[in-house]
Simulated scan of single mutants.
Amino acid sequence: MNHQHTPAQPGATNSTARRKRLIGAVIMVGFIGAFFLLREHWSHIAGYWPYLLLLACPLMHLFHGHGRHGSHSGGSGQK
């Protein structure tokens, strides 16, 4: 049984690597842009930190989802 294994699409691995590089570059440019935006407007943003902290509590309760990591109902000895 002598036969050659060829990939279905020879350029598929090359385009996937390019796509990953492009996505990584876009993410890095986004981080750099966010850094400079925050740096320039920090005095405007700093006044909202107490309100953002208070807003984080209900958002954590809303998005946490009690059924994912184990439910609160049930006894301590039940499995």
Rank of each mutant, 00 (worst) to 15 (best):
Phe35Val: 04
Ser71Phe: 00
Gly11Asp: 09
Leu55Gln: 06
Ala8Glu: 06
Trp49Gly: 13
Cys57Pro: 13
Gly74Ile: 06
Phe35Lys: 04
Pro58His: 00
Leu22Gly: 01
Gly47Arg: 00
Cys57Asp: 15
Ser71Cys: 09
Phe35Leu: 05
Ser15Ile: 14
Ala25Glu: 03
His61Glu: 12
His3Asn: 06
Leu37Gln: 09
Pro50His: 03
Val29Ala: 07
Ile45Thr: 12
Gln9Met: 08
Phe35Asn: 04
Leu38Arg: 07
His61Val: 15
His61Leu: 14
Arg19Gly: 08
Met1Gly: 13
Pro7Thr: 04
Gln4His: 05
His5Lys: 00
Gly65Ala: 01
Ala46Thr: 15
Thr16Gln: 10
His69Phe: 12
Arg18Tyr: 06
Leu53Arg: 10
His69Cys: 14
Ser73Asn: 05
Ser43Pro: 10
Phe63His: 05
Lys79Thr: 15
Gly75Arg: 06
Ile23Lys: 01
Met1Ser: 10
Phe31Gln: 04
Ala46Asn: 07
His72Glu: 15
His64Lys: 12
Gly24Thr: 05
Met28Ile: 08
Asn14Tyr: 09
His44Gly: 03
Gly30Val: 07
Ile32His: 00
Trp42Tyr: 07
Gly47Thr: 06
Phe35Cys: 01
Ile27Val: 02
His41Met: 11
His44Ser: 11
His66Pro: 11
His5Ser: 07
Leu62Pro: 03
Ser73Pro: 02
Arg19Trp: 01
Ile32Tyr: 01
Lys20Phe: 08
Trp49Thr: 15
Leu53Cys: 12
Gly11Arg: 07
Ala8Lys: 02
Lys20Arg: 11
Met60Leu: 14
Asn2Tyr: 02
His5Asp: 02
His61Ser: 11
Met1Cys: 12
Leu59Ile: 02
Gly65Thr: 04
Gly30His: 06
His69Leu: 13
Ile32Arg: 01
Thr13Pro: 06
Val29Tyr: 00
His5Asn: 04
Gly11His: 07
Pro10Glu: 05
Leu38Pro: 11
His44Pro: 05
Thr13Ser: 04
Trp49Gln: 10
Leu55Glu: 03
Gly33Met: 07
Ile23Val: 07
Leu53Phe: 07
Arg19Leu: 09
Ser43Thr: 15
Ala17Tyr: 08
Ala56Arg: 02
Ser15Cys: 01
His44Leu: 14
Asn2Ile: 12
Gln4Pro: 02
Ser15Asp: 02
Ile23Ala: 04
Lys20Leu: 13
Arg21Lys: 10
Leu37Phe: 11
Gln78Cys: 09
His41Ser: 09
Tyr51Ala: 13
Met1Asp: 00
Leu37Asp: 14
His44Glu: 12
Ser76Tyr: 05
Trp42Leu: 15
Tyr48Lys: 00
Leu37Pro: 08
Arg68Cys: 15
His72Thr: 14
Ala12Trp: 08
Gly24Asp: 10
Pro50Cys: 03
Gly24Tyr: 02
Gly24Trp: 02
Thr16Trp: 01
Thr16Ser: 06
Ile45Asn: 03
Leu38Ile: 15
Ile32Ala: 04
Gly75Ser: 10
Arg18Phe: 05
Gln9Tyr: 09
Ala34Pro: 08
Met28Val: 05
Pro10Trp: 06
Ala34Met: 11
Pro58Gly: 04
Gly11Val: 11
Tyr48His: 09
Gln78Ile: 13
Arg21Met: 11
Phe63Leu: 12
Trp42Gln: 02
His66Asp: 11
Gly67Ile: 00
Leu37Ala: 08
Gly67Lys: 06
Asn14Met: 11
